[in-house]
Amino acid sequence: MSTDKPELKRKHSLAHILRENSAVQGIALISPTAIYMLIFIVLPMILVAVLSFMSRGTYGNVVYEFNFQNYVRLVDPLYFRILLYSLGVGLATMVFTIMIGYPLAYFIARSPARKRSFYLFLILLPFWTNFIIRIYAWIMILRTQGLLNTVLLDLGLIQDPLEILYTPTAVLIGMVYEFLPFMVLPLYTSLEKIENAQMEAAADLGARPWKVFLRVTLPLSVPGMIAGSILVFIPAMGMFVVPDLMGGAKTVLVGNVIRNQFLTSRDWPFGAAASMLLMILTLAFTLYYTRKAGFGEELLV
């Protein structure tokens, strides 16, 4: 038995390695996050990616045979049109949630501290009801004999009922309604963070209220606007429930296409390919958007 054996053993013990090696330390420290990311994000994505290169068997089963068939099928004017249309709906949703959400967030951020949490609670209140039920509520409001038309007709503001339901307008209303809180919350956070002194300083230097807003408040709330836009745009692109229920069969978005592949046509590989395409496009869009606005890593924290 050699004398240096215990010494050697200590050198290779886990504790020793952890103490001495900073690279190992780093890995050990981020491992909980890393494991979480691996299980919930990386693995499912690899699964979808792999699936997208397979093909559908006769009975909706997956045939494990590598090919580019699905992607070739996607290069089709029909899908391109749907994609463009979805992009339009996504962007419109984003723009409208900003237009409605900004004044709302501004109002909440500027109201007395003790009222703010109550207003935020109101913003989140709809989430306590099932999503589908909320959509049906909108259907009740918008349909031909619905609440809106009844009221407008009774008031004599219109002669014939408005045909809103099952049109793209209805889809947009539903989407904006659904995604508004995702815009209001980040906007509120960044507006609330702006010190009052910054606005006072601007006024002190000769800026009228409108100038104060344009030169100080608005630029300082851009990070919130970007965060909100991402939170709204990405899920809006993949949304299928709202177009299904409120757009009738007329409005088909990318989300519907994907959903149909998985649930109706049982063509999982093709659905996976469409998902991959959507993901890459939204990723490209968000990266471009954040870089262009001059915000990068700050947003992610």
Partner: peptide, 28 residues
Amino acid sequence: PYLRPINTVFQSYALFQHMSVFQNVAFG
């Protein structure tokens, strides 16, 4: 405030975080 011939140096400085030093000074 914007009509008073008075300017303030704030305790927290209240510099505009999104502007450069030049832009801050030029603002007024």
